[in-house]
Amino acid sequence: MTDTGWRGMVLCLALLICGSVGPVLAQEGPVRTGTLSINFGVQTASAFSATVPLTVNVEQGTLTADYEGGQLPGVDASVGMRVWKNLAIGGGVTAFRSGSFSGKGITARVSARIPHPIHYDRLRDVSGRGEGLAQTEIGLHLQAMWITSIRERLLVTVFAGPTAFSVERDIVIGVEAQETYPYDSAGFKGVSSQRVSDSAVGFNVGLDLGFYFSQHIGVGGLLRFSRGTVYLDVPEGEALSVETGGVQSTGGLRIRF
């Protein structure tokens, strides 16, 4: 995704939040002007496997890392502005990051074939786990929203639209080996990683349920699925194609106005 595209989406979202888009309508729908939600929760992360070249001792070996999936904790802030009856447009910002709460990062199971320091064509197999790998994913979602109330206090919103992703994550690019003369075998000592980033445009669809205690304040839950593909550059190899997004399950404060 280009910077221009990102800037455009940010501008649109800012205008929505400021309430300067769309007329102020008489309340003919479930909300008068719009909704605002702030949520905390998790997003599923896709497991993936990546093989990168490993040049050690003037020879190329291989390194394969199987990154675990799981759930990334994060936060979501969304806004919707009614434009006609039940129809609203809006957007949201999500930020999910491995280790935000637990302090742990992503774990990758690593297997590598490390070149011998003395001989060519005598690759040595090592395997282990790389832990504490960071993964941060920011999503900027533009949404067309259909808002309806099932009961007086229960507001249901379905939405869909494009998502701009910005992904930053640690990729394992090397293996630290435990080796001693004559170096015919090697043990796993650790990994070296590099933080890489990319952005991309994808989509999102979802459902929001809001239960209001009063005219304006309530609580609710949001279920959003987003998907995009980023390309992460690694040294010496082709960029890694990694799917981003996932199923977000969050809950939090609801405000309607």
Partner: peptide
């Protein structure tokens, strides 16, 4: 001639 085999030099 010496053979052109590739070797690692420590």
């Amino acid at each position: 001639g010496v053979h052109g085999d590739l070797k690692k030099v420590s």
